[in-house]
Each structure stands twice: as structure tokens, then as C-alpha cells.
Design a protein around this nucleic acid. Structure first.
Ligand SMILES: [Mn+2]
Ligand SMILES: [Mn+2]
Ligand SMILES: [Zn+2]
Ligand SMILES: [Zn+2]
Lengths: 127, 127
DNA sequence: ATAATATTAGTAACGATTATCGTTATTATT
DNA sequence: AATAATAACGATAATCGTTACTAATATTAT
């Protein structure tokens, strides 16, 4: 996978890297249509999936609703507003607190975790 | 919602309460068909959603793959095996560690969180 | 340049879930 | 107990996010 370069993939990664709002595949598609009028939604999905599989970006499963993507691949948590649906980085210290788990009572292997907080964002609270 | 009693909802809740494997809607549907040959998959989905909305059961978003449900509504974490797909309760102390977050740098309201660990379960490791 | 092939655009297909709708079961009222 | 009101049902169509397919195009190696 990812053996040949493509203008489309470059544009997708550039767009994702330029923003911090954890966009969906369709969000990116809508924006890129302006500069790449013929780009296909399937191409956006295919490249985002390939980039995520190769570890270059992060895929955030989002319960109901579409997946979101993140160019920041460092371990960090997220917060989702249950009113407006926005997803933002969450600078809690939870991430640094979690790793030292008591793995003694668990015989499997832990490769990672996903931690999502739910609530109401500042903007929605003020309405 | 949930204004009238129904045999189907009773059976769905009973089945979910009797197991600890976090079944999908279709899992429950398949089992209940034996005792309730005419039950509809839509009915299972509708009741599981209503029960989850009213807080009587828990819905676990599962990334790709269908949602799973849990009759244990206490705050607890889960572990998903990326090989066989099984989802099990995870008795880490992470849940008790998380609540005291530094909420000072966050202006929104946190209502809860979902924490899922990924890895390989004991059974799959032994193969 | 030529050849090989990964990637694309466009579109069909898919799986999970929700919506619709005429019928049935539950509950309240007479 | 019969009647009326309506929530819930079963069957199935529709929706949504995503993936699969295919002929054409773009990239890379020769
Ligand atoms: Mn992020
Ligand atoms: Mn559980
Ligand atoms: Zn909000
Ligand atoms: Zn396993």
C-alpha cells in the first residue's frame, strides 16, 4: 500500500494537517472539491483509511456518526459535545495517568486504548 | 417512551441481563427467535435503543462493527480483542483514577466518558 | 518512449440502523 | 366485560457511512 505518490493523497494529508477540528471524510471532501473539482469521495475515504492503517494519521471512531480523523498522532484524549457534535482535543492528564494499569489480573495483551469524554462544550453551555 | 409493557421488551432485557458477553442487537435477535419465533429485528433495535436512552442498559459503540449492549450500567471499562472481536469487562482501576481531572483549563461540562482498551485476548494469544 | 501497475473517478453494493405503516397488544374508561 | 385510545409490533423500505468494483488515468521503472 501507498507505493506510488498521488496528488490527491498529498492534498488530503495537507488539508487534514492544517486543521485541528477532527474532520470527517466528507468534511475533507467538501473542502478539497474547491481546489480539486474532480476528486472523488471514495478517494478521500480510501486515502484516509490507508494513511490511518500506516500510522500516519489517527482515526477516531465516533459512536453514531461518521469517523473523524486527526493528523496529530500523539496519544491524547478527546472531548465530544453531545449538543453540537464538535470534537476537540482534551488536555486532561488522564492519558499520563492511565498506562500504569494493574496488568496482573489480565492475561491478554493491551496494545492501546481510546478515551473519549462526553459533555457539553463551552459554546453550547453559554446558550 | 416505554409507556406500555411488552413481552418482547421484557424478553430482550431478560436475555441481556442473563449474559456477560456484551451482545449485539443481532445476537439477541438470533437467540430470542427460538422462544419468540415472530419477533422482529427492528423490535430488538427499537427496544435496546429505548432502554439505553432511559439509562436502563448501556450501549457500547464499537468502532467498525455493530454496537454492543450491556445490562451492567455501573461505570466500568471494556477490552476488545482485535483478533476475535470479543468484548469483555476490564477490571482496571482506571475508572476510579479518571474522575479527578483537572477541570480548571476546561470551560465545558463533562457528563461521562467511554474507555475502551484494545489488544489480544488470552485465548487468541495462546494460538 | 514503453511497459507495468498503483491510483483515480464514478458508481454500485454493502452492513448497520432507523423509519414507515398497517396490524396487534396493552391499558384506561365506560 | 365490552369499548376506545394508543403504544408497540412485524414486515419491509429507506437511510447513512463506508467499501468494492471497473474502466480510464497517472505514476514509476525499464
Ligand atoms: Mn486530536
Ligand atoms: Mn460490561
Ligand atoms: Zn457544543
Ligand atoms: Zn480474541
Amino acid at each position: 500500500m501507498l507505493q506510488k505518490h498521488s496528488k490527491q493523497r498529498e492534498a488530503i494529508l495537507a488539508e487534514l494537517s492544517a486543521r485541528k477540528d477532527h474532520p470527517t471524510a466528507d468534511d475533507i471532501y467538501t473542502v478539497l472539491r474547491k481546489s480539486h473539482p474532480n476528486i472523488s469521495l471514495g478517494t478521500v475515504y480510501r486515502n484516509l483509511s490507508a494513511l490511518a492503517d500506516s500510522g500516519k494519521i489517527l482515526r477516531l471512531h465516533n459512536g453514531k456518526g461518521s469517523d473523524r480523523f486527526d493528523a496529530d498522532i500523539s496519544q491524547h484524549c478527546h472531548f465530544k459535545c453531545t449538543v453540537c457534535g464538535c470534537v476537540s482535543d482534551f488536555s486532561a492528564d488522564a492519558g499520563s495517568v492511565l498506562p500504569p494499569l494493574d496488568r496482573e489480573c489480565f492475561e491478554g495483551r493491551i496494545d492501546g486504548y481510546s478515551l473519549m469524554f462526553y459533555g457539553v462544550c463551552e459554546k453550547c453551555l453559554q446558550k
